[in-house]
Computed example of a mutant assay.
Amino acid sequence: MSTLRNRTTVLAAATTAVLALALTACGGDDSGTKSAGPATSNTAAAGSSSEAAKDTGTTTGGSTASGGGTASGGGTAKNTSATKGSTGSASATAPACATKDVKITAATQDGPPYTHIVLTAKNTSGHKCEMKGFPEIQFLESHKENVPAVAKSKPAAPVVLTPGAPAYALVKLSDGGKDEDGEPVSAFSVMLQGGSGLAAVKAPGASGIFVDPAQAKTGYWTYELRNGADDF
């Protein structure tokens, strides 16, 4: 009886020990699972960090595409164009045309009465030159003053001629009236502002032109004659 009780006690103690071990093992599993839980969260966080990094990379790639905004390098190209433009205006600093650089001819404008002529100055040199201001014209030996210029015909930008290019100036001779105090002119002189030399220009027509010094006016040199600005 005593032996049976002892066996029961030992068995109970052994069972308790086994249960305790089992519980400890289960507890270890729980805590392991719990610690594994945050580890999984960390892994997820690491994964989302990777995704974020990918997203960031994509966004950066997008801003690198804004490096396509180096198409604002296209803006640099605009600046380059502006530079070209300023270089173009720098070409406006070409030397002034001298009479030896151009060939000046005269032709009547419209029909009778012939009140206007057009001067054409063609660049016959091998370099660029600027037609400054207006032609300084003297029609008559009896009137040494230059023909006055019409301010509204002044162009907004310098007139720079490349080799072979022409410039024009409209010149008023008279009002076309019979009672005007004028004289016939078969040739006249032209000087270029800023340049050197004097050009002798043959008047158009077999009998030349009729000039009233009181009515004579000249326009500025321009690339082409313009309605309005060159009407005088």
Rank of each mutant, 00 (worst) to 15 (best):
Leu161Asn: 00
Ala92Phe: 06
Leu198Phe: 00
Arg226Gly: 02
Pro113Asp: 06
Thr83Leu: 13
Leu21Met: 12
Met1Thr: 07
Lys54Gln: 09
Gly28Asn: 12
Gly205Met: 07
Ser35Ala: 13
Gly176Lys: 14
Thr3Arg: 07
Leu4Val: 11
Lys128Phe: 06
Asp110Phe: 07
Gly177Ala: 14
Glu141Thr: 15
Ala13Thr: 06
Asp30Gln: 08
Pro166Leu: 09
Lys152Glu: 10
Val190Trp: 09
Gly37Trp: 08
Thr59Phe: 11
Pro184Gln: 13
Cys97Ser: 02
Ala17Lys: 07
Ala149His: 11
Ala187Ile: 00
Lys103Phe: 06
Glu130Pro: 01
Asp29Phe: 12
Leu173Lys: 02
Thr115Pro: 00
Thr40Ser: 09
His127Pro: 01
Gly61Gln: 07
Ala65Asn: 08
Thr105Ser: 15
Glu224Met: 14
Gly208Met: 12
Cys97Pro: 00
Gly61Tyr: 07
Lys217Tyr: 07
Pro38Lys: 08
Thr59Lys: 13
Ser186Tyr: 03
Ala39Asp: 02
Ala157Asp: 14
Thr124Asn: 02
Gly182Ser: 10
Glu141Trp: 02
Ser153Tyr: 08
Leu11His: 03
Ser189Cys: 02
Ala216Glu: 02
Leu4Cys: 00
Ala53Arg: 06
Leu173Cys: 05
Lys217Glu: 09
Ser41His: 05
Asp181Ile: 07
Ser66Gly: 06
Glu224Asn: 10
Ile209Gln: 01
Ser207Pro: 03
Cys26Ser: 11
Asn6Arg: 11
Gly69Met: 01
Asp30Cys: 01
Ser2Val: 03
Ala98Trp: 00
Ser48Phe: 03
Val118Tyr: 04
Glu136Thr: 05
Ala187Cys: 00
Gly126Arg: 14
Ala165Trp: 01
Ala90Phe: 10
Cys129Gly: 11
Ala151Cys: 02
Thr64Ala: 10
Gly75Leu: 03
Thr15Gly: 02
Gly88Ile: 11
Ala106Gln: 05
Asn79Phe: 03
Gly133Trp: 06
Ala203Ile: 04
Tyr114Asp: 15
Thr80Asp: 15
Gly164Asn: 09
Ser2Glu: 07
Pro113Phe: 05
Arg5Cys: 01
Thr40Met: 08
Val150Thr: 13
Ala45Asp: 12
Ile104Ser: 13
Thr56Lys: 08
Ser207Glu: 15
Gly47Pro: 00
Pro148Arg: 13
Ala77Cys: 00
Asn123Pro: 09
